[in-house]
Design a protein around this nucleic acid. Structure first.
Length: 876
RNA sequence: GGGUGAUUAGCUCAGUUGGCUAGAGCACUUCUCUUACAAAGAAGGGGUCACUGGUUCGAGUCCAGUAUCACCCACCA
């Protein structure tokens, strides 16, 4: 066998390994013959940038489960894709063309802008795909989809048509969130709320035909131009006499009523509220109930409209200044208070949102014939979808409960245009000879002329909300490829950042139940945010980003994968930093060197299974049994989705048990077959986590088939496990001797004698069986049993043995005394507690037998130890 | 205003049906380049598991409350 380098260099092998996986065709489930299917739909990243560490985190988890399923013989599909990401991509691309060409999208024109953005996305998608491969995702690239692929989009638009027919999609004038910078309506989830210091203005509104005033408080005085009422709480005694009277609205000089509405908070401000139905969500509700007029005084560019009289054309900010000045002149500004309040801002560009009434398309989430939200709640509460961590279940259900209609029309250019046409005629004339011409024509096919009058038609200019298409992603992607939908839907697991809880997971659930009557996924798994070392979010402005490719280049993909999934529970944030990644790079190297050792053994090969005859020593039995136990636990942990705990367990076994324990013992008493068996199982168990290094070692060991499709290790259930505590006893004996050497500063080259007193024949046998190993690893010249030792010696107790190490002249009696005394106190404390517990009737009657016997066993051992110690102390 | 999560060794975090003289990695102390590995090996120090009560034979783990921090939701004008 050729000499392998001491250091594992992932950079040199990872690309080649990935290429072999791809060429094998095993990423494609069509090439796997199995009745049982498994499918993870990978969350499609926005095709407008590059992969960041958050993507890598989710992908790693998905790939781990995918590889686990594949090795368990399931027809496994990991379906990759990319999202066109409407508003976000438009913002990104507009900036790009502005910077590179000095052009605005208006200067380019809608059609051309769309084409250019499309090309940009495809370019980014190609780059991002190469990043995804670097991470080692075992996805079927032949099935990769983009949200704007014709087949995917067609399926999504068919849903639109169906929902429209069912009355779940309607167009109407409602108050919406308007982003003046993006120039579009936004849904509620796309609006953020930010605590902002501001001012509360108290304005006096004169009563009609009176010298009295009613004072209202507002943070946005400019909206008074659109006031159509003043409202007070019906219970508010201060104002009860005024309800029904009128007010002369200052500056506008219109007459508006004072109304009573229970939604008004008595304790806030003066208890009297100006009502501006066109520019405030609550006011809009109140206005509707009281049939108030709506006067839109702010337009879609955040400028005052003509209805704003002399303020028309001003920005809202300018108008506010002017209005305050004018009110002051009229002596109507009573006072100004400082306050902090919550301001709505655009999720994408952070511009302040202007609420305004607008004609938009909505999804009715609670229609009489089909309630999207109620069905979703049902699916969650009935457990059709299992959610990790489980407390997110309640959060989701509550969110659905409070859900309002979903605004799905955007006034942007990037994204699918509404499949809706209008008869030109109907827009021009209000009196139409054909009444049907006034109704929108909804169709996924392009419409050339009005089906009723044959006249010209125009397509609805609106663009669909990105989440309308991505909410159908598991359905549309599988639907567009042969029988995939029948085979794989519902998908098995969906993994996403918790920030997508409301944006995406919720909508996928609603839409899937509506279109397919099935849940989109059986398990929903949330990852927390990946933060930097100081717990900050990664962001461009902070400049603390970690590029996955840089990390992979430096430490390898396996190290990155491990550092992303370890040390974090589902849904919990985790921190990522170089030192952490380094430790996993070190682990990959450890596994590499373990394998190097194994491969260097004569006649070494990986072994699928062993029999009783292959177990020759205590060490063999111990490692075989521990391994079997490990396999059982790992499988359980995979089933309960606790992969980070599983990886931790594997790591402890690999490093501590196998490398430090078994391999060292095996050097004395060779058993290549056992080495081959354990390594075979370890490579398999590790493969989902660290696919590259394991596959590489597998190949070096001479295996022809890929590790990726090897059979997952099975736990041997029926096998009666014999007690495997003998070898750990040998290990702890070694440890104790080394400890003594260390304490006494005995050079490692100096051999010492080991005298043992024991009444246990079994212990004696084990020690004799492992004498060579003990001698070598603890530097012992000779082991003597039950001899009387004369002269100075150090005494320790290990298990049922009293061990004595003759050390003439090196024994510090006082030091040994203190040490023994300290240990005695410790033991007595433990024994007292343990004895009390065992003599407690309730404990004995209620605790499980296993716990009791274990307790007894430990107590006896400790008591024996104590007795020896006392004896020893007396002799000092 | 409502909700969720966190609080365990100097730091970052595990700890899933309650059985723990509480674990890992990093950092620290002391040895060792011993023929798989110094990206390593060996030995060691370090914690009344935020606080207060409760349930229980037994609580880091379950319940109630308190404190601090973080995040999310909400139509406080």
């Amino acid at each position: 066998m050729k000499e392998l380098p001491k250091i594992y260099e992932p950079q040199k092998v990872e690309d080649e390994i990935y290429a072999r996986w791809e060429q094998s065709g095993c990423f494609n489930p069509d090439n796997i013959d199995s009745k049982e299917a498994y499918c993870n739909i990978l969350p499609p990243p926005n095709a407008n940038g590059e992969l960041h560490i958050g993507h890598a985190s989710g992908y790693t988890v998905m790939d781990i489960f995918g590889r686990y399923a594949r090795m368990n013989g399931k027809k496994t599909l990991l379906l990759p894709g990319k999202d066109h990401a409407g508003i976000q991509t438009q913002v990104v691309f507009e900036k790009k063309i502005q910077a590179e060409l000095g052009l605005s999208r208006q200067e380019i024109g809608r059609e051309d802008f769309y084409k250019k953005t499309y090309d940009f996305c495809i370019d980014r998608a190609n780059y991002m795909r190469s990043q995804e491969k670097k991470i080692g995702i075992s996805a079927d690239w032949s099935r990769e989809k983009f949200t704007l692929d014709p087949d995917v989009l067609k399926t999504a638009l068919e849903t639109f048509v169906k929902m429209h027919e069912d009355g779940l999609i309607y167009k109407g004038k409602r108050i919406i969130n308007w982003c003046p910078r993006c120039g579009t309506a936004l849904s509620d989830v796309e609006v953020l709320h930010k605590e902002t210091p501001g001012k509360l203005y108290f304005i006096k509104y004169p009563l009609e035909n009176s010298t009295e005033f009613i004072t209202v408080a507002t943070t946005r005085p400019e909206t008074m131009l659109g006031d159509t009422a003043v409202a007070v709480n019906p219970k508010d005694k201060h104002y009860s006499k005024l309800v029904g009277k009128n007010i002369v609205l200052p500056l506008q000089n219109t007459i508006i009523p004072i109304i009573a509405d229970k939604r008004i908070d008595l304790s806030f401000g003066t208890g009297a509220v100006k009502i501006t139905p066109s520019h405030d969500p609550l006011d809009w509700e109140i206005g509707k109930d009281h049939k108030l007029a709506e006067i839109q005084i702010i337009d879609e560019k955040a400028l005052i409209t003509d209805l704003g009289g002399k303020y028309a054309g001003l920005t809202t900010h300018e108008a506010r200044e002017e209005i305050l000045k004018d009110l002051e002149k009229l002596n109507l500004l009573e006072k100004i208070e400082e306050m902090t309040h919550s301001v709505s801002i655009c999720e994408r560009c952070k511009t302040i949102i202007e609420p305004l009434t607008s004609n938009q398309w909505f999804v009715n989430v609670n229609a009489e014939n089909y309630s999207l939200k109620k069905e979703a709640i049902k699916s969650i509460e009935s457990g059709m979808i299992e959610i990790f961590p489980s407390n997110f279940k309640k959060i989701l259900a509550d969110w659905f409960g409070n859900l309002h209609d979903w605004c799905i029309s955007r006034q942007i250019w990037w994204g699918p245009q509404f499949p809706v046409w209008y008869c030109n005629d109907s827009q021009l004339t209000t009196h139409n000879s054909q009444p049907k011409c006034s109704e929108p024509i909804v169709s996924i096919e392009k419409i050339d002329s009005c089906p009723h009058c044959g006249g010209a038609v125009v397509q609805d200019e609106n663009t669909l909300d990105t989440w309308f298409t991505s909410s159908q992603w598991p359905y549309t992607t599988l639907k567009s490829n042969g029988k995939d939908f029948e085979t794989f839907f519902s998908s098995d697991m969906m993994i996403m950042g918790r920030d997508l809880l409301f944006f995406w997971s919720s909508r996928m659930i609603m839409m899937s139940l509506y279109t397919t009557k099935k849940v989109p996924f059986k398990n929903l798994f949330f990852t927390g945010l990946v933060l930097d070392k100081d717990g900050h979010k990664f962001s461009k402005s902070r400049g603390n980003g970690i590029d996955p490719l840089t990390v992979i280049d430096k430490f390898g993909a396996d190290a990155l994968r491990m550092s992303l999934i370890m040390d974090s529970a589902p849904g919990q944030n985790s921190r990522l930093y170089e030192e952490k990644i380094e430790t996993f790079r070190n682990f990959a190297n450890k596994l590499w060197n373990i394998s190097r050792y194994c491969l260097s053994q004569e006649n070494f090969k990986l072994v699928e299974d062993i029999s009783e005859e292959d177990i020759n020593s205590e060490a063999d039995r111990w490692i075989a049994e521990s391994l079997n136990e490990l396999i059982g636990k790992t499988n359980q942990l995979f089933e309960s989705k606790q992969i980070s705990v599983a990886a931790d367990l594997l790591k402890t076994f690999t490093w501590n048990s196998f490398a430090d324990g078994y391999i060292e013992a095996q050097k004395i008493e060779k058993n290549e077959k056992m080495l081959g068996y354990v390594l075979d199982k370890l490579l398999k168990l590790w493969h989902p986590f660290i696919p590259f290094v394991t596959e590489h070692i597998w190949t070096l060991a001479g295996e022809k088939e890929l590790l990726m499709i090897s059979k997952w290790p099975a736990h041997k259930e029926n096998k009666q496990t014999k007690t495997s505590s003998y070898f750990p006893f040998v290990l702890s004996l070694n440890k104790t001797i080394r400890n003594v050497r260390k304490e006494k500063n005995i050079e490692s080259t100096k051999k010492i004698e080991l005298w043992i007193e024991t009444t246990s024949e079994l212990s004696k046998k084990v020690l004799l069986d492992n004498a060579d190993f003990i001698k070598k690893s603890a530097g012992i010249s000779v082991i003597k049993f039950n001899k009387t030792l004369i002269g100075g010696f150090i005494q320790r107790v290990v298990g049922e043995c009293v061990i004595k190490i003759p050390l003439d002249g090196l024994v510090d009696v006082e030091k040994e005394k203190t040490k023994a005394e300290k240990e005695i106190v410790n033991l007595e404390k433990f024994i007292a507690g343990s004895t009390a517990r065992l003599s407690n009737k309730d404990f004995v009657s209620k605790a499980p037998a296993e716990v009791i016997s274990q307790q007894k066993e430990t107590l006896e051992r400790k008591q024996a130890e104590l007795a020896e110690l006392k004896k020893h102390l007396a002799s000092l």
